[in-house]
Design a protein around this nucleic acid. Structure first.
Lengths: 217, 217
DNA sequence: GTGACTTTGTAACAGTCGTTACCATTGGGG
DNA sequence: CCCCAATGGTAACGACTGTTACAAAGTCAC
């Protein structure tokens, strides 16, 4: 590729790209053809200059006086993120959380296909979530390898989280999303991402008490 | 309070405090009495100096040569975050995601009590999730006000997200957690936090393709 | 074709954050 | 009682990130 210069990209940029992508896709389905950084800024609550600067890290694909071609920008961002082709995803845990994730259409829209679901509860194995059969966790390693699954999502009770992470890692998964509050350990070649509602609540809670005491003062 | 100096606290500090808290609680239940910044650093993958510096923003409560008293530190962090008393929480959407959140014990452990669940599906209203009855959304405003609920969690289909946010805001909620990919608008006095699995996946996906091309090179 | 307007791309700046290095204090052993 | 090891507190530094401001480039009307 001629673009993608060998420059280190700041973390913040990578965090914002998915945000841009979501808005762009929404605009595209609304029938619009181009968008200015100013408009994107409104829709994402991000400084327009920041947006322009973010994008220049990967090349310059706007037209001055016009803006950005939405379709082209969507494709470029997807290509940058690696979301321009399908990634297979395995779900460990077929409870409410697992079902919620499996049912979530947004994943498929972005090329994430849930192709395997595992649980250790014999009353669940064999049943279907959507059109995927729930398999026993003992089949995890083989299935992940056979299907070339790259992403594992942990949606099990906390006590089973580390084991799920171990098995997924051993099976060759490259990314693990952990929806458990447990801090799990993974080999260095696996990228781990934790999502805990409590963390997010505690985080926002701080600002709540902050604004309250300001209001009181 | 004698502590809590009127200094601006960096965002990053507030994001790390819940992490420390989680580990500390785990240590406490393991029976340990004190912990050093070095040990905390191991468990959280955060530079020990960073941890010490974070904590000094709120006072100095370690003993040199010994470490931090775990129980005391837990209480201090909870107090800083505002997690030292109960906060009521309303859930909008009683599907799989809503059920998963309602069932999640971690919330209660940290003082977040789900005291109301709403849905607009007549086949769901009246049923129970845990010991909470599912109410029709038309009762949202009154219930939120009567119970003094401060936090709202949106776990509805995307198309209903903005309406849920509007109603929660109007009812006087102070914090909204949005589990929908939709960008919702809220009044300035409401703190909004978005959580979208797709964003997180796309984010980590970038680093995946990055390490792959490095490995190939 | 020219001038006014729009919008991007980028250089320069300032603030923030995290890290490294060092000093101060505590506890324990001889 | 003194000395040493362990550990927290803090100052200084360097990197990075985001913002502001401006110049370059394109579009549209007449």
């Amino acid at each position: 590729m001629a673009h993608t210069p060998n420059e280190r990209i700041p973390e913040g940029v990578i965090e914002r790209l998915p945000l841009y992508l979501g808005v762009l896709i929404q605009l595209r389905s609304g029938g619009e053809g181009t968008v200015s950084s100013a408009r994107l800024g409104e829709l994402t609550d991000i400084n327009p200059a920041q947006i322009r600067r973010d994008l220049t890290h990967f090349g310059s694909f706007g037209k001055r006086g016009v803006g950005y071609d939405i379709t082209m920008l969507v494709e470029r961002i997807q290509s940058i993120l690696g979301a321009d082709h399908v990634h297979r995803l395995a779900l460990v845990g077929a409870g409410h959380l697992g079902s919620a994730i499996a049912d979530y259409n947004g994943l498929r829209q972005h090329g994430f296909h849930v192709t395997a679901i595992f649980d250790n509860d014999p009353t669940k194995t064999g049943s279907h979530i959507g059109d995927i059969a729930v398999q026993d966790v003992s089949e995890l390693e083989r299935t992940v390898k056979d299907q070339g699954i790259e992403i594992g999502v942990i949606a099990v009770p906390p006590s089973a989280a580390q084991e799920a992470a171990d098995r997924l890692s051993a099976a060759g998964v490259r990314i693990i999303l952990n929806y458990t509050p447990v801090i799990v350990r993974v080999p260095t070649e696996v990228t781990l991402h934790n999502t805990d509602p409590v963390h997010e609540l505690l985080h926002t809670l701080y600002y709540l008490s902050k604004t309250e005491s300001v209001a009181r003062a």
